[in-house]
Design a protein around this nucleic acid. Structure first.
Lengths: 119, 119
DNA sequence: CCATTATTTAATCAAATGGTTAATTTATTG
DNA sequence: CAATAAATTAACCATTTGATTAAATAATGG
């Protein structure tokens, strides 16, 4: 059982536009070889190869050898890690929208804000 | 209207453990001053200050001045950007789990896989 | 086996990142 | 206004990152 990657590691892997585009393509189109993945990009093959390694080490993709190709596919478990994080904090950030509205509304009426931070 | 940050920028901001911890605390506890945010960490104040700047530039927090403090709060819009991304690709990665199961199940029976990548 | 195709590894480099300490700014308070 | 408190900016440094080109490895096909 591959241990679930840390959410910061997954975030880091998805923070590069090239890697995000690779992930999006594998998500929507399924498996692709390294060469197919590299094709749309202006950067070199070795650069793509290193991005694939980062994605693999973050648990976002896995590779298998098929004839002369190394084929990549998404590991949805890693994306689940992000979804779990969102889920864990959802009520807080969804609540923030409401609190923000309330705060702005309150600011309209009274102006008795001592400005001291919480705690 | 602050433009919605790019999802890669938000991922980058959340990819550092210190910054993620700051975000989690602001989410669960609400507003805090820079000093209160810095307190639990072993690193210097300036280091925290720079992390707060990264979070601000990624649209994840906003700061206001209140007496001698600079108070930070979450901007849920930035987290929404991540949620939107997840939502956009949800059916694909949730589908991947099923396809993976099916693939593994199929591999049990037949073994006629030519191994050629898609396309 | 030798050539070709597919991909990675090695060596290198500039720029970005995350940290430090010292100095500066900004605001409050005696 | 001088002293203190809160936070940032400046200058610096080591490490990591994202890229390159050249060389090496792996698998297929003639």
């Amino acid at each position: 059982m591959a241990a679930a990657p840390a959410v910061t590691t997954v975030f880091g892997a998805l923070s590069d536009p090239t890697r995000l585009a690779i992930v999006e393509r594998l998500l929507t189109e399924g498996e692709h070889s390294a060469g197919e993945i590299a094709a749309p990009f202006a950067i070199s093959k070795p650069a793509i190869s290193k991005h694939l390694r980062v994605l693999e080490e973050a648990g976002l993709i896995e590779r298998r050898v098929a004839r002369q190709w190394r084929v990549c596919r998404i590991r949805p478990e890693a994306i689940q890690v992000v979804d779990d994080w969102m889920q864990q904090y959802r009520r807080f950030w969804e609540g923030s929208f409401d609190r923000l509205e309330k705060l702005l509304a309150a600011r309209e009426g009274e102006e008795s804000d001592n400005g001291r931070p919480d705690k």
